[in-house]
């Protein structure tokens, strides 16, 4: 177990103990919620793990770096930004996928852009957002998030 995993587990344990100390019934409910969410995310998690495996075995690194690597340029960045905006993958599961892409030659920029559009923009939930927050605010937020995600990715590509 590496340091980060250890840290996360210790943090969860400490928070859980504080929870039980403050309000046992609530802490129990939190555990039920946790168990449910874990079961809920499990199929997608396993599927993504298989996809990562397939990608490592079958897709040559050259292909990956051509599509999302340094040489893919602006078209590559726009493609991943768009993919992140329309895909509906739980962000927690997107990180291992991003890590494996990075290992295989994807650029920091495209990975950062992908994660940022994936989390900030919800194409699937846009109609709901427009209905609740009004068209103007919802459209502005999503459109600007798209641009911001690309800027964040580009800066990260420069500094990392």
């Amino acid at each position: 177990m590496n340091t980060t995993a250890l840290f996360i587990n210790v943090l969860a344990l400490v928070c859980l103990l504080i929870g039980f100390w403050k309000d046992e019934a609530r802490a129990r409910r939190a555990l039920v919620v946790a168990a449910k969410s874990f079961v809920r995310i499990l199929p997608t998690m396993l599927a993504i793990i298989l996809i990562i495996g397939l990608m490592s075995g079958f897709v040559p690194e050259k292909t990956i770096s051509e599509i999302v690597g340094e040489e893919a340029g602006l078209v590559g960045i726009l493609t991943v930004a768009f993919l992140g905006a329309i895909l509906h993958i739980p962000s927690l599961i997107a990180f291992p996928l991003a890590a494996s892409l990075l290992e295989k030659g994807a650029s920091v920029t495209s990975v950062a852009v992908f994660i940022t559009t994936l989390t900030m923009i919800g194409f699937v939930t846009l109609p709901l957002e427009m209905r609740i927050l009004g068209n103007k605010l919802a459209l502005l937020r999503n459109a600007l998030s798209f641009i911001v995600a690309i800027i964040i990715g580009l800066i990260m590509g420069v500094i990392l």
Binding site: I8, N9, L11, A12, L13, C15, L16, G19, K22, D23, R26, A27, R29, A30, L31, V32, V33, A34, A35, S37, F38, I41, M45, L92
Partner: peptide, 14 residues
């Protein structure tokens, strides 16, 4: 993942 889920569960309840 189990630890992350526990943290998320705690947040959502508290």
């Amino acid at each position: 993942m189990p630890a992350v889920m526990v943290l998320m569960g705690l947040f959502s309840v508290f």
